[in-house]
Every structure is written in structure tokens, then in C-alpha cells.
Amino acid sequence: MSKKLSLEEMKKVAQLAKLHFEERELLQFLQDVNGIIAHFEKLDRLNLEEVSPTSHISWSQPPTHGDEVLEWQEKESIFQYAPQVIARYFIVPKVVEKEEK
């Protein structure tokens, strides 16, 4: 199978990621991404029947934490990254399109 991303698809991905690019930038990305896809096609030619899908290269069991609360002591400092804080709320432009999920 040979798959290539079109410029339209590239534009859509950029739009979903809320990133704005000039047409020439998009064309450059398109070339890069299609290069990556071509590389996958090379991998597809390998015999991988015995290999299960890998989403990560590490095989160790990941670290976890127990269910104990540990309060973050510097939470007030987080407010400094917000453009506006009122009554402890982070203030954002009004959103109405989507109901709270």
C-alpha cells in the first residue's frame, strides 16, 4: 500500500492542532511527513508476524504511586502563569459552543 498525505489533509491536521502556517511551510511539512510515511512503508515490507505492536520501547513495569494525598505546597505560584485570575478562577475568553463534559 502506498499512502501519501495531500496538502488538504496537511491543512486539516494543522487546523485541528490550532496551528497557522504559510502555504510554503505546509509544503515543507508535507514533504517531511511523506518522507516519514515512506519510511513506514519500508518497515511494512519486513516480516513482523511474530512481533506484537509496540507503543513504547521500554519493557519495564512503569512507576506508580499509591493512593495517598500529598498536597502541592506551591499551588499559589501556579496563578502567576495565568493571564488573568479573579476570585481564584483562571479567566478565559467565553466559551459556549460545547456543553461541559
Binding site: I86, Y89, E100
Partner: peptide, 21 residues
């Protein structure tokens, strides 16, 4: 889960929402 949004309140500026995480 996601945070909570409030769309009205006495101290909210016009045309804005408040986020509580």
C-alpha cells in the same frame, strides 16, 4: 476528568469564563 467552567458570576468580566481545575 476535566476541570469545571463557570460562565457567570458577579466578578466575571464581560464575555469571559472562569476555570476551576
Amino acid at each position: 476528568d476535566a476541570g469545571k467552567l463557570i460562565h457567570e458570576g458577579p466578578s466575571l468580566p464581560w464575555n469571559s469564563s472562569g476555570v476551576d481545575f
